[in-house]
Design a protein around this nucleic acid. Sequence first.
DNA 1: CCGTATCCCCCGTGATACTG
DNA 2: CAGTATCACGGGGGATACGG
Lengths: 126, 126
Amino acid sequence: MIEEDLKKYDSFDDCPVRNVLDRIGDKWSILIISLLGECGTLRFNEINHKIGNISQKMLTVTLKTLEADGLLSRKIYPVIPPKVEYTLTPLGESLLPAIHTLTLWAVENMPAVLASREEYRLAVAR
Amino acid sequence: MIEEDLKKYDSFDDCPVRNVLDRIGDKWSILIISLLGECGTLRFNEINHKIGNISQKMLTVTLKTLEADGLLSRKIYPVIPPKVEYTLTPLGESLLPAIHTLTLWAVENMPAVLASREEYRLAVAR
DNA sequence: CCGTATCCCCCGTGATACTG
DNA sequence: CAGTATCACGGGGGATACGG
């Protein structure tokens, strides 16, 4: 019984912010979306080099997830060596303003957060 | 221009969006911030019950982290049994618009994301 | 060049029991 | 009521090697 009875009181599963963070709150998604938002279209290795410290595996995995979610599209040129281009879909582009808002907050307020955290650390250490 | 100013954050380590997600991109932070944004001030067990499916440990950990980051404040009443109230700081409140923007996007576009994902799943299965 | 396929480790999260 | 303490686990993520 319990499993189902609890679900109707489960505010968690229906929270839209959590749903979106479950999709794009991982380590690389938003970074890739921002990058494509700036640059328009990029090849696999271009993204790889621009980010710099992402593993090839995670880049592949993240791009595939974003494609499955309909946030970016993949164009394969049947040439050798292979050439693949990634571009945001309109759905992906629609996410840019939200990311931008979050970015602005970060630029303005992260220094305060870091300062607070340092102060807290010192207070606890004492 | 903001767009150009942000370009200097291209590298991963200095990316503001990643910094903020590293802090509040965990499973419970944004949910708690939203809740306090709605309700103003809440006691430990009130948050516990309103969220419903968070473990006591994670609630404690998340609240402590948010306090250390200066996003919420903690008021302890020296009574027995203990009474502790949590309220957003101005810094925490300043995050609400960004969360709201993200929420709006989720409400509007998550159905499309889920549909795309299902379609992709079917395409791969074939 | 653009991926796949493995192996492995860390740590965020949860379950449970206990305390002032 | 509001936490601590401890144990356990699952999976996100990295390193590496191989494939078309």
